[in-house]
Amino acid sequence: MFAYIIRRVLQMIPTIFGVMLLLFILFNWVGGDPSYILAGKSMNATTLANIRAQLGLDKSQFAQFLIFVKQVATLNFGISWSNQQPVSSILAARVGPSVTLTGFIMLVSTVLSISMASLVAYVRGSLTDRMVTLICTTAMSVSALVYIIAGQFWLAHKLGWFPVLGWGDSFAKNLVTYLPLPVLLGVIVSLAPDLRFYRSCFVEEMNHDYVRTARAKGLSEPKIMLKHVMRNALIPVVTSIMMSLPYLLVGALLLETFFAIPGMGREVIMAVDKSDFPVIKAITIYIAILTMIFNLLADIVYKLIDPRVQLK
């Protein structure tokens, strides 16, 4: 196991390097000269030259790349171009709200969708099953945007059951006041696709031979479902949950934007809007590294719950 972890960590290095290369090409080559953006109103030759020197744009591409590498290694991305704050401190403040929001959505949605999926899989082929699938498909055809816009309009603005937007200082206040509506909408959006996916995991398992053996042993259908099938289906389900954890941090982009929740997702959108390259680069690198770590964790968890897996 230990050798496996070391091997995986070593494999991460070329990947991180690749991400850096990608971002560098994007933002330093394709993105063009940002000095005009930063100069703003005071656009004259001296200011531009100063900015370029500050950002190291007067050096060769290779030297600039090394600067970038150093930034990644020290996790210090300099100053945000839009509000002159250190990027690291901005991001540190944004992590909390994102994790809280998506954490709750994920928790509620997973519990609901797994329980519903197992019920639906149990009666697969029946009218209920087909109706539920149809409803899910139709529900998924409506853009998340529409749910959020409509939800915010009706439930908050018109009916006044929730605040239209905002975020509080304390966890408790958020939990009671500001989280409910975004979490509700987030769950609604993710319930349908999750339900379909988990249902297919369960149905796939139910077609295996060991289910026939369990029946031949005289076990009742609910017992077979809950004990034999569920335990096997848990493997793809848990793996899928672990793989989607990195998305926790980019957060529910749209929800954060609409509800003015100061999370990473909203930060990214604002940064793209303002062409704030350091922030975009920083967030992307952080997320990339975390994704790799989570993938490794997912594989380890997979090994723990599936006795057949041999990690080499």
Partner: peptide, 23 residues
Amino acid sequence: MWFYSVFTSVPDMLLLLAFSAVL
């Protein structure tokens, strides 16, 4: 596979936004 791991280590939406930011 290296290409693949580079492109999948960044969530889709984020990658889309990063590209959109420069193009």
